[in-house]
Each structure stands twice: as C-alpha cells, then as structure tokens.
C-alpha cells in the first residue's frame, strides 16, 4: 500500500464521503420482482478506491446506477439510504441530483463505442458537460476540455476535439469518456467495467492512469468489475457482490490473501497464476442463480462446498476487526 492510499484509508474512518445502507433496488417485471440489489452497504472515504467485484447479474452495475439516480422504470430504489457528503441521494429531487451528476459524482461506462454520442463532435460532448454545471463561456469551457484531454494522455488534443467518435479507436474513446468524467473535478467517480471492452494492453494503461489521476486529484473511485485481478493492483478495499448482496468487504490485501467467504475463495482460486500452471483451474460449481428465483437463505448455498443446514437462513453481515465484514455462517476465519 502506498502512502496516499494509507492516508485515504485513515480518512475513511473519520467521515465517509459515501455511505450506503441497506440499499434495495428492485425491478418489477412481468415474470416477478427482480431483486437486483438487495441490501447493499458500502462505505467509501474521500480519495479512497473501492473495487466492487461480482459476476454479471450480481447487481454491481445497478448499485452504481442507483448512486447516480439513473434507475429507470420498472426499476426502483425500494429501500435503504445513500448518503453522499451529508446529502440524502434517495429522497433528493431530480434537479438537485442532476446538479450532482457529472459534477460531484461522475460515471464511466463499460462500452466506449456506445457511450459517446455518434453525431456530436468530441468538443461538443466535453463543453456541454462543463456548461451544464457552470456558467462559463464556450471559449473557457473549450480550454477546460482541451486540458482534460491532455490530462488523460491524449496526443494532439486540438485535432481530437474536432473529431467525431467514429474516427477514434476504442481506447481513445474510453480516454475521452474518462476526460468527460474528470472535467468538472468530481469527488467520486463510478467506473462500470471501463476496461472490459478494450485490448489487454490498453486495459493496463487505462487502469494505471485512472489510479494516478484519482490519487493526484484526491478523487474517490468505485471500480466495478467481474475481474478480481484487475482491482488487485488498483483498489484500497474490495467488496465482493453475489446475487444482489455484498458477501465480503475488506482491504485488498485481506480479501485477496485471506478471503473469508467461500465465494470469494472460489473467485480467487479461479484466477490463473504461476502456481496453477499445469493444473486444472478451480471452478465454482453450478450456475449463477436467477434473481427471480433465488434459493432460500444464503443465495450461494447451493454452490457452496461448506454449506450447512443453518445456511437456509440468510446470514447477516458480521463485522470483524480491521474494517472487515462477511456474510456467511461458515467463514474461513
């Protein structure tokens, strides 16, 4: 852990920037209520980087969209609170929320080929982000746009400003999306698998650069991913999500080296490494359950090697020393 992240972790304990308690986001569909997020607790300090890890359908993206207030019907936040810097995001009116979005809390999406508007020039898409939140002249906004492109390492920014998205590569587009997220100097960025759609080489670069940028500007980051390896080198803390719930939270070192939850254990064992060369990779047995038809009690029960009869009752999060927390009857303590 470097010095800045230790500071960040220290600050966490004082006054969190973001505090989510018991968040439930459900989708009323014809087939039934999909409990995409079903009781999530997250605490994030200023400048802290949290890795939110889970497989697809675990509710990690919906958690991100819930923070921004971008849940569309039939989805709805049915319970819980999201406290951001003393503001209650759930009950806040839409206009106040709009003023926070892209200004205090920014988001980076998964697929850079879809996030930029295809018919608008890059400069338009940057400038409008500035002018949505501040009364500045277009000339000044353009200067900020240029600075933002330089900041994310885009070569010949003046040329790129005049380009359309289709003229740029995927990696370049994602950098521009990151520049858009950074342009108003937010306090929190939610990054929803921003490197999944990119080449591995670009992936590494972007992760490295985003980390540097967040450290330098003191921006807190929630990095959503299905890939534990990605956040291992990036995050201060990791929360692991399964079927709409966070099953384990802890510092990155704790979660990676001493996983408590059998699901986390399974995820780590499925990552290929030098130690596993020549051996069959571990596989978590079974399939992700349908959110419409979750098993009774612990949602991981049917795939779990340690399941006991008590698992028929859903476990509550157990808080442990060192800021750790786990939702399991039989954690690997």
């Amino acid at each position: 852990m470097d010095v800045s992240s230790m500071q960040a972790t220290a600050m966490t304990r004082q006054e969190p920037l973001l505090s989510i308690k018991g968040l439930k986001t459900h989708f009323a569909t014809r087939a039934g209520v999909v409990k995409a997020v079903d009781g999530v607790d997250i605490e994030l300090g200023r400048g802290e980087i949290l890795g939110l890890v889970g497989e697809s359908g675990s509710g990690k993206s919906i958690t991100g969209f819930s923070i921004l207030g971008l849940i569309d019907p039939p989805g709805r936040i049915v319970d819980g609170s999201i406290d951001y810097d003393g503001l209650d995001l759930v009950s806040m009116d839409e206009e106040a929320r709009r003023r926070l979005r892209g200004n205090d809390i920014a988001m980076i999406f998964q697929d850079p080929s879809m996030t930029l508007n295809p018919v608008l020039r890059i400069d338009t898409q940057l400038i409008e982000t500035v002018q949505a939140h501040a009364e500045v002249s277009t000339a000044e906004a353009r200067q900020r746009a240029r600075d933002a492109l330089v900041q994310v390492g885009i070569p010949s920014p003046d040329e790129r400003l005049k380009a359309y998205p289709y003229e740029l590569s995927g990696g370049m587009r994602q950098r521009i999306a990151i520049a858009i997220a950074l342009i108003n100097k937010p306090k929190l960025i939610i990054a929803d698998e921003p490197t999944t759609a990119l080449d591995v080489s670009i992936q590494g670069q972007i992760i490295y650069e985003v980390k540097q940028l967040c450290r330098r500007t003191g921006t807190a980051l929630i990095w959503i991913t299905h890939d534990l390896a990605v956040v291992a080198g990036l995050a201060d803390r990791i929360s692991v999500m399964y079927a709409g719930r966070i099953v384990e939270t802890g510092t990155t070192a704790d979660v990676i080296e001493r996983p408590l939850h059998p699901y986390t254990q399974g995820l780590i064992d499925s990552v290929p490494s030098h130690a596993t060369r020549g051996h069959r990779l571990h596989q978590i047995k079974g399939m992700t359950p349908s959110l419409l038809n979750l098993p009774k009690g612990c949602a991981f029960r049917e795939r779990c090697e340690k399941a006991t009869p008590e698992c028929l009752v859903a476990p509550e999060p157990t808080l442990l020393p060192g800021g750790k927390s786990v939702r399991c009857w039989n954690p690997a303590l």
Binding site: L68, L70, R98, R99, L100, R101, G102, N103, A106, M107, F109, D111, M114, T115, L116, N117, P118, V119, L120, E128, T129, A132, H133, A177, I180
Partner: peptide, 26 residues
C-alpha cells in the same frame, strides 16, 4: 435506451439539452 443517452444523463445535462440535442439529432 442507448448508452449515450444514459451517459448524457450521467454527465448531468439538463433534460432539455438531452432531448433537443442528443435525442433529436439521432
């Protein structure tokens, strides 16, 4: 339902801007 509309909302654009520029032009 396109991502770029959601992204425009995530940028905190005013609804009128999203409607008259991002939606209409497309």
């Amino acid at each position: 339902p396109m991502d770029y509309i959601k992204f425009a909302r995530a940028k905190g654009l005013r609804p009128s801007r999203i409607l008259n520029v991002h939606l209409l032009k497309n």
